[in-house]
Design a protein around this nucleic acid. Structure first.
Length: 456
RNA sequence: UCCUCGGUAGCUCAGCGGAAGAGCGGGUGGCUGUUAACCACUAGGUCGGGGGUUCGAAUCCCUCCCGGGGAGCCA
């Protein structure tokens, strides 16, 4: 079908163009194919907004210039019908994109009756149930283009630095961290679990390749119903040999600065659009301030120890004891002190996962960090130096009441040339939500998986 | 799992004991350039399900179902 269409355009001496390319073809006769985004009319003129995925083009049908049947089609064609429009591209300042198509004819290729997502406000339940159609809408379009750029930027950052991409398994025999709820699946005659992190598999890979990373889905079966949680999210996890905690934090801040720059440069149109879409005056100002913050997001970020953060919170009147975990409120208070993300590091060992390295300067602590994003977005990165002492790791496994046998392979890394190494995990959706100031991360992934929502 | 708010036209919502409403969307007509166009007319309802209170229930009570927001946990 595609081949024959292309041939037809050649025969007609027309050019089949994507809407994003139209600016370079002013004055040319072209054929556009796309879906009807919206339709407007005034007197003897009909406007059809055509969407082909790369952009939107206003097609103008003037009563005096087109045959009656085409004018009538332009007058009645349904939203999201697939059409082919033939005409001439011309400049028009007030049209979206600065150019418009002076239409000569239009052909209905596929009708669309009662398209549910009308140019109107809809509730989140309605939209999420129609996520497969919602993807066509302009805000979702902008967000997912930013997501594409963000993921490419992650790969570029690590690729340029000689990291090797190592894909972890998604089906695992046991929990990686032993704490969170896992999705159980049946695996022939056995039980298996969907991976909640690739980290334990990255550590042996770091011994094999030195600098490695993975970018894969992670699954969490916790019944978390908040704007920061998905049951399936994309998890980026670098792991580096001979890197200590300080180096790990440096890697994290360089990476974040890099991808933010790539987004600001590569997706300025989309980010500008997101800064105005559905926002009131105050929100628009807040967004502009956020963009200024992003523009100045150069290393180093701020650093504060857990112990100092507790003191800071106490000074702010928060009732908190050393050893308590930080909740969402505490994290918001800490991050609000700074105009850049802040590393909170060296948390109490008693609430830390088994694999984190004990701080030699204080065995009550582990050498880990959380990176807290400003503006209340909370933790977007969690990282640590890993325990490389076999005896200490074995003791930690025992302390956490974890079964030892499924972790023997992991202990091997400490048996055969153990080495200082560190890494971190960052959620693609949380990062994108923070950069684009999106309230809920469910719209930063094409098909969100949430508690009680698995359709479409 | 807990707390909290909600379910009324295709969509977004108002009505909160006394004739089922608005805006948008759909349909029809009007307007030479619209920007979620506008104007007029019009069709469209098991008020989430079940039970109860009452002369009378969308409205009050009980219960179940579904969804939103938040907490814990985490990225």
């Amino acid at each position: 079908m595609v081949i024959s269409l292309t041939k037809r355009y050649q025969e007609l001496n027309f050019r089949m163009l994507w809407i994003e390319e139209l600016g370079k073809h002013i004055g040319e006769k072209v054929i556009l194919r796309g879906w009807v985004y919206n339709r407007r009319d005034s007197g003897k003129v009909r406007f059809v907004l055509l969407r082909d995925g790369t952009g939107i083009c206003q097609c103008v049908f003037a009563d005096s210039e087109v045959e009656k049947k085409y004018f009538e089609l332009a007058d009645s064609v349904n939203q999201e019908s697939l059409v082919e429009v033939e005409g001439t591209i011309r400049e028009f300042d007030r049209a979206p994109g600065g150019v418009e198509l002076a239409a000569r004819s239009m052909k209905l290729l596929a009708d669309s009756v009662d398209y549910p997502i009308t140019p109107k406000e809809h509730g989140i339940d309605f939209l999420l149930s129609r996520r497969h159609l919602w993807l066509r809408s302009s805000r979702q379009h902008a967000l997912l283009r930013c997501r594409d750029t963000l993921i490419r930027a992650f790969h570029e950052f690590f690729g340029e630095r000689g990291f090797i991409l190592i894909d972890p398994p998604m089906i695992t025999p046991t929990s990686c961290e032993g704490t969170t709820e896992l999705f159980e699946i049946s695996y022939f005659d056995d039980k298996a679990y969907l991976s909640q992190s690739g980290q334990l598999y990255m550590e042996p890979a770091a011994a094999a390749f030195g600098k490695v990373y993975c970018l894969a889905p992670s699954f969490r079966a916790e019944k978390s119903k908040t704007r920061r949680h998905l049951t399936e999210f994309w998890h980026l996890e670098p792991e580096v040999a001979f890197l200590d905690l300080a180096g790990d934090m440096e890697l994290a801040e360089e990476m974040l600065s890099f991808v933010v720059k790539e987004l600001l440069e590569g997706r300025s149109t989309e980010i500008e659009f997101l800064g105005t879409w559905g926002k009131n005056k105050q929100e628009k100002r807040a967004f502009r301030e956020h963009i200024e913050l992003l523009k100045n997001l150069n290393p180093p970020f701020y650093r504060i120890t857990y112990t100092d953060a507790v003191k800071l919170l106490a000074k702010k009147g928060v009732n908190i004891q050393w050893g308590d975990k930080f909740g969402a409120d505490e994290e918001a208070i800490i991050s609000a002190v700074y105009d850049k993300p802040v590393f909170c590091h060296r948390y109490p060992k008693r609430s830390a996962p088994f694999y984190m390295k004990e701080d030699p300067e204080n065995p009550e602590l582990v050498k880990n960090f959380d990176l807290l994003a400003p503006e209340g977005y909370g933790e977007i990165i969690g990282g640590s130096q890993r325990e490389d002492d076999l005896a200490k790791l074995e003791a930690a496994i025992e302390r956490h009441n974890l079964p030892r046998e499924p972790l023997e392979w992991y202990l091997d890394i400490r048996r055969y040339g153990t080495f200082v190494h560190s890494g971190f995990g960052i959620g693609v959706e949380r990062t994108l939500a923070w950069i684009t100031q999106t309230h809920h991360i469910r719209v930063t992934i094409p098909y969100p998986r949430l508690m009680d929502r698995i359709y479409p």
